[in-house]
């Protein structure tokens, strides 16, 4: 016969969570939460910081962007919101220049032509570099770059030309290198540029938007937005028919009055939303355009008076 001898039960110990032992790191995290909650917000991640404001202890936490260490403390150096990933504390500035990341889509303007490279203003802390070797040249994607190409760089991009490109890499000093080696990228024409604070452009599935009003929008992550006439997919320059004339052309197509009005309307909507500091996404733009068309006002009336406030209020009401 088998008899069971019961062990003394200690289950009540486990039911009491206050005695649960954490890894020392976890306990630090709890301390951190407490540290951050001395402000007037319940949500510790949204605490606002101004330059010179102490954040936390420098022993328990690592300093990230927008902070510096002074003795025992991590101190904020920009005005913005506190962000924390495990032990890394950083402050994200609410208004700042564009901080590039590899793979970002940017819209830029050529400022200078140098040997084998262009300098591009991309709203960053330094001009970006577009190497001759990272553009598509007429005559095939795989074509070698010859000396003759170096001599006629201005036939591809000139000072003042606008282009859409992708961030390819960084140089040692933090300057970014761009590339346009895709048919989506390249010189821009048939449209208008609007500049907004870069923080308003969130990363989206696609930054090439096509609005139903016959307007294409390119949302550059650097805050430059290109609004242009819609180009049909079939008319886009194909791989096999890579036409240098079309890709590097400086001539605008004919744009009818309705499209011009639509482009201006979209630009004005973007300006209004940026002035009200509303993040721009495809959904917001579409909705705002519908609202504006419903009002049937003139394009320029958008920028007058409190039309902007009304638009943002209406957007908020729907969203």
């Amino acid at each position: 016969m088998i008899s069971f001898a019961s062990f003394p039960s200690s289950s009540h110990d486990f039911s009491d969570y206050s005695t649960t032992r954490h890894h020392p790191d976890v306990e630090d995290d709890i301390a951190m939460d407490f540290d951050l909650e001395d402000g007037d917000f319940e949500d510790a991640t949204q605490k606002l910081i101004v330059p010179g404001e102490p954040l936390t202890s420098s022993h328990a936490f690592m300093r990230g962007h927008g902070t510096y260490v002074d003795g025992e403390e991590v101190v904020g150096s920009v005005a913005g919101t506190v962000e924390r990933v495990n032990k890394l504390v950083s402050v994200r500035a609410i208004r700042t220049r564009y901080n590039p990341e590899v793979g970002d889509l940017v819209v830029g303007r050529i400022t200078e032509v140098q040997p084998r490279r262009w300098k591009v203003d991309a709203n960053s802390r330094q001009d970006a570099v577009l190497m001759l070797s990272s553009v598509n040249l007429p005559g095939g994607v795989q074509r070698r770059k010859l000396e003759s190409d170096e001599l006629q760089m201005r036939t591809f991009f000139e000072e003042g030309d606008l282009l859409v490109a992708e961030v390819q890499a960084f140089f040692a000093d933090g300057a970014m290198s761009l590339h346009t080696r895709s048919l989506k990228y390249g010189k821009l024409r048939n449209g208008q540029l609007v500049a907004v604070p870069p923080v308003l452009i969130k990363r989206l599935k696609s930054h090439f938007l096509t609005l139903p009003c016959g307007v294409d929008v390119i949302l550059g992550l650097n805050g430059y937005i290109w609004v242009s006439k819609h180009v049909k997919e079939s008319q886009q320059e194909g791989e096999e028919g890579f036409d240098a004339e079309a890709v590097y052309s400086n001539k605008n197509d004919d744009i009818d009055d309705a499209t011009r009005a639509a482009i201006s309307r979209v630009c004005n909507i973007i300006r209004i939303l940026a002035a009200q500091f509303v993040p721009l996404t495809d959904a917001v733009l579409l909705e705002a355009y519908d609202l504006v068309v419903e009002q049937e006002g003139d394009v320029k009336d958008l920028l007058h008076g409190d039309a902007g406030d009304a638009l943002v209020t209406a957007l908020g009401g729907r969203g």
Partner: peptide
């Protein structure tokens, strides 16, 4: 000055709909 900058930051964060 600190209050002015905080107020401005709070307004912008609120406008972005991400914060208080």
């Amino acid at each position: 000055m600190r209050r002015a900058v905080k107020e401005r930051t709070r307004t912008l964060v609120a406008a972005m709909g991400a914060g208080p």
